[in-house]
Design a protein around this nucleic acid. Structure first.
Length: 203
DNA sequence: CAAGAGATCATCT
DNA sequence: GATGATCTCTTGA
């Protein structure tokens, strides 16, 4: 038995978790833990907000533009990270879902900081815990996630999701944030968050 | 507190 | 050449 498995009761989510329908994965990720192992220290937090992007028809999904070098990862096997730079400033973290050839992902929009908070505060240049990971760009900065993680296997690496068997209740759904250009697709209630959480991006 | 502007670059036209 | 799955700071009520 390895040292890590002897010491932790948490289970790293296996690939078949990500093979489910994207809306299922989006909902079930709430309450799970995002974990990032780094030589400077480990950061971890409970996922409290997600969004589903389900191409190729979904106009908000990058894959609706077709299969390009950028979107290729979304067409690949589930359980891999899709990370990209937006507005020239912020990285956004997604997990590939469903099956090979189906371009769909879940965007991680907010987590509640639980471990490595001091490290997050250093990276984010702020001390307010509520402001460390309450947004998709913020959490990538707090977890030191960047382009180097694009395409990485989140079932076997330094970046992964754990099930610590904590239940969340009162899951709310709304349309997704920041996709006014997406026509009728902007109305789909594909954003999921923990209603009572202080750590979501918006209410 | 709400609204607006600016920052900055990978990607696709 | 245009545009974004954002964030922070400033302005003004």
């Amino acid at each position: 038995m390895s040292r890590s498995s002897a010491l932790t009761s948490a289970a790293k989510l296996p690939r078949n978790f990500y093979e489910q329908a994207t809306l299922e994965v989006s909902r079930e990720l709430l309450g799970k833990y995002l974990v990032r192992v780094h030589r400077d220290g480990t950061t971890a937090g409970q996922i409290v907000e997600t969004e589903a992007y389900i191409g190729p028809d979904d106009k908000a999904c990058h894959a609706s533009k077709g299969r390009t070098p950028r979107t290729e990862i979304m067409f690949g096997p589930p359980g891999h990270a899709y990370v990209y730079l937006i507005y020239g400033f912020h990285y956004l973290l997604n997990f590939v879902t469903e099956g090979i050839g189906v371009p769909a992902v879940v965007l991680i929009r907010a987590v509640e900081p639980r471990e490595g908070i001091e490290l997050m505060q250093l990276r984010r240049h702020t001390t307010a815990v509520r402001n460390l990971c309450s947004g998709p760009g913020k959490l990538c900065q707090a977890f030191a996630i960047d382009r180097s993680h694009n395409g990485s296997d989140i079932c076997a690496g330094e970046l992964y999701v754990e099930d610590r068997c904590e239940r969340v209740k009162n899951i709310a759904t709304t349309p997704r944030i920041g996709i006014d250009y997406a026509g009728k697709w902007k109305h789909n209630p594909w954003r999921f968050f923990v209603r009572d959480s202080e750590f979501v991006s918006k209410r």
